[in-house]
Design a protein around this nucleic acid. Sequence first.
DNA 1: TTGTATGCGTTATCAG
DNA 2: CTGATAACGCATACAA
Lengths: 349, 349
Amino acid sequence: MPKKEVTIYEIAKVLNISAATVSRGLKNHPSISKKTCEKIQQTARDMGYRSNALASSLRTNKSYTLGVIVPRLDSNFMSTVLAGMEKSAVERGYHLIIMQSFESAAKEIECARLLFNHRVDGLLVSTSSKSKDFKHFDPFHQKKIPVVFFDRAPLGLHSFNSVTINNKLAGYSLTKLLLNQGARNLLHITGNTDLLVYRERLEGFKDALTTVKIPFAREMVWSSGLSVEDGELAAKKIAMMQPLPDAIFVSNDTCAITITKCLQKKGIKIPEEILIAGFNDDPFSALFTPGLTTIHYPGLEMGLKVVEIIIALINKEKTSPVTEVLDFEMIIRESTTSRKHNSKETPTA
Amino acid sequence: MPKKEVTIYEIAKVLNISAATVSRGLKNHPSISKKTCEKIQQTARDMGYRSNALASSLRTNKSYTLGVIVPRLDSNFMSTVLAGMEKSAVERGYHLIIMQSFESAAKEIECARLLFNHRVDGLLVSTSSKSKDFKHFDPFHQKKIPVVFFDRAPLGLHSFNSVTINNKLAGYSLTKLLLNQGARNLLHITGNTDLLVYRERLEGFKDALTTVKIPFAREMVWSSGLSVEDGELAAKKIAMMQPLPDAIFVSNDTCAITITKCLQKKGIKIPEEILIAGFNDDPFSALFTPGLTTIHYPGLEMGLKVVEIIIALINKEKTSPVTEVLDFEMIIRESTTSRKHNSKETPTA
DNA sequence: TTGTATGCGTTATCAG
DNA sequence: CTGATAACGCATACAA
């Protein structure tokens, strides 16, 4: 049977002191004598005392909890970010409540509500692709609870806090590399361009085309879910194109590799006939032949950084808006380096 | 400036009713008239009221929070499990605090302490490889807070709740498949055999050997971290073996594929010279050539199931111990099917 | 159907 | 340095 909860009152009673003193002694409050502190902590241990974080939070209005909302947590990229967050949070005495929006605006709103009611000290969000407005974060703003967006940040009038990479430059660099390898008939397969991340990569793609005076055409861009299935579908369509594109910039590695494999099965030589570039540098990408040229997305650093920032905001060591843009790295592997061409220009971050 | 918190008292004052009525009305308590309920909820909305989950939890001793401790969350397998957990939890009105032990016993203890203090209603654990005793979960048992282990469960005298797959059978089946393909000089590269998951796969490996009267030898088993780096190292050692093994059962896909790639680079033909099998069926495994034979680890189902179970335990719809063993599936791909041999026996789960 | 009174376990304020 | 007391916001036993 669950024994009665041991509280600071029980400890106080045993030691013949007040609960207030126990409370202070437990956290080494400076105004308590060293001796009393130790005595308190010793008996606390002996009695099997466990502090009640809920009660403490209620009283102090500090939960040391960060809410996290992500579209889904089971991607290599996202779980890496979350791993960084968790590490960074724990090091600073915080912990995480992680929720998934499943790309649904309604679910994202529900998550925000729950986390708000649970009195998180800060909120970290990568928005769902369906979220068009961000009113559900207003309660946080009203209560001055920091909200920091990462990876997927809204393009706002109000300046939001955010941690991102320079997607435009990344898209530009990758495209430029393809062009430098001699490609002139490019295809860009990307995600939902309602999302800033993908729109910016597309901007970069266009900018790169401009530098070699290739006029942009809508047919050059395919929107896709970027899954394995989407990749298979895309490959089918590509194989039937007349003429074949000579280079494809795909917005994630999974899809890029799927397309590579499918095209190879149809007898198309990669990279000889078609250059392919991906995005993310998922760990397994390095294991493929031909190697996949890609952008290393610094997920771990992003996780570490975003927590660092939100805790600085919580402690008012910084003031909004914070817009951090992380460095990325281009990973150049053989699938875009077979053709010897003018690679004098090597764009990097 | 953060306006004063709107509480049930403010609402009560506005409506000239008691706080108790408001409290009840807010959650549609049956003994409150429909009309009053609606009036209360309407003014609550109007006043921008948000319930304080902390206060509620303190009062009711129910936090609707599940604690989760995992070695690390950034593996494909683990993030899939977590995704399932989160989904299942939210559907049942719960949410997750996720923490990483980083394979450290000390950190695991720290996580358990924190989650205990935060009054989680239940705890889900995949143990660190260093955890030798499980005393840090005693406080939970004393307070009758359910603890359910998943994937990595302790081998205990006390019968713990657990959700696992039949690792022994999986190891047996995979090994048997290799033997049926004609392999007689086998190697098993696995993780830390202090962990039951790996020890059981090893048991299965041994059992399979017995069926064809191959005496087991310690040299057949290599313990490893199963990372890409570990795979590269292993491949180097393998390539120098005289004679080469004719089949390798590796305990995860990442390492299996790394080894495959490395051996291929050294001119060894896979699967013609060496059959290779992995474990987990990570999504990218399907994309490789040669295809990797592996065990599909049902991560999503495991996540769903373990939450279902712990909530049943919380609600006392079940009583400890619950030991659920999930079905797995063998995924047979070309890397172990090139040799035509006596495959009359096709072991499955 | 509603109200009254009290406590969940902690910490902040003020007084000593 | 220590103690008494009053909150924090909610929910429940009991009374009406």
